[in-house]
């Protein structure tokens, strides 16, 4: 279908040194290093600066891009840690830093003017003029809000010709809320503060029993319970010209990051080469999702819903 489409970067999120050590990142073109929800997470690459430096070096040696993510709303001591991580990453030649907070953007543009800035989902970019405003203050890549539909995201593509890159998510558990306190350190529901026991490393769900739906709880962040799956739509996304396709794997194991990567890499290569979509990839990534799959936001439905692609379209996808 699209024989001459250029391939966007295929990226994942690698939150910690342990996940980095476990994951086979060979299917990916690069990775976002660090966990943006909480700096207390054991081995968070935003805090373990030595591991961050090593990971950047290894990714570069493997010919891959290394990006750093940063906390959503850093304040107080967290901000110092962010500065430390950015300084180390800059020294190692990081390829870009993802920011959600405009204070972090400003720090990079004033103190590390050579660094590329990517604005993330929580930068709340819902309109192309907002993307342009951010580009005017130094953003090199924009991630339009995850909440936008595929058509609404298409409205952003004119900025590609203006030199601004665009990134969209295609898989993983997308964050749907960022809190100021950790639900797992506040002894839910009493709200008595308890020491952090890294409960967020385990699977924790918030189940709305009377309404039959759930969210993944990562302490300070709430995420989709289901896995976003856009594997059957990669042909369309590649043809739109997006610069990067991201697997939001901040709460996934290294093993799952690798398994998802191989499926998405194969499907993306097929799409870019104009080969038809192989439905076995959809089956494989669906099997990896513990709590079902979704893509509703992309198609104007509730985020947790999965909108099936019509059979005849799937045959032509790729």
């Amino acid at each position: 279908m699209q024989g001459s489409v250029s391939s966007p970067e295929l990226l994942c999120s690698v939150p910690t040194s342990a996940v980095y050590a476990e994951a086979d990142l060979s299917p990916y073109d690069g990775a976002y290093l660090g966990q943006s929800f909480c700096l207390k997470v054991d081995g968070n690459l935003l805090v373990d600066v030595a591991a961050l430096r090593a990971a950047i070096g290894e990714l570069h040696q493997a010919g891959k891009k290394a990006y750093l993510t940063t906390p959503v709303v850093p304040n107080g001591p967290d901000f110092k840690a962010v500065r430390r991580a950015i300084t180390a990453a800059a020294e190692e030649g990081i390829d870009g830093v993802e920011v959600h907070d405009m204070g972090v953007l400003r720090v990079i543009k004033t103190e590390f003017p050579g660094l590329k800035v990517h604005t993330g989902h929580f930068a709340n970019v819902y309109h192309v003029e907002t993307a342009r405003a951010l580009a005017s203050v130094g953003a090199d890549r924009i991630s339009p809000s995850y909440e936008l539909t595929l058509d609404e995201k298409s409205d952003f593509t004119p900025v590609l010709k203006e030199g601004t890159e665009l990134e969209v998510p295609i898989a993983g558990k997308l964050p749907i809320g960022m809190a100021h306190s950790c639900l797992l350190c506040l002894s839910f529901p009493s709200r008595v503060e308890v020491p952090c026991h890294q409960q967020c490393a385990d699977r924790r769900q918030l189940e709305f029993n009377n309404e039959d739906w759930q969210m993944r709880c990562a302490g300070t962040a709430m995420l989709m319970a289901e896995d976003l799956v856009m594997i059957e739509h990669l042909g369309k996304l590649a043809s739109e010209g997006y610069s990067a396709l991201r697997l939001e794997t901040s709460v996934e194991s290294g093993e799952k990051i690798s398994a998802l990567g191989f499926e998405y890499r194969a499907a993306l290569d097929d799409a870019v080469a104009g080969r038809p979509f192989d439905k076995s990839h959809l089956e494989a990534v669906s099997a990896l999702a513990e709590d079902g799959i979704c893509n509703g936001w992309y198609f104007g439905d509730s985020g947790r819903v999965y909108v099936e692609m019509a059979e005849h379209m799937m045959e032509g996808a790729g």
Partner: peptide, 10 residues
Amino acid sequence: NCMMSSYWKQ
């Protein structure tokens, strides 16, 4: 920073 509403229902 909250998209829980549209995740649940829109």
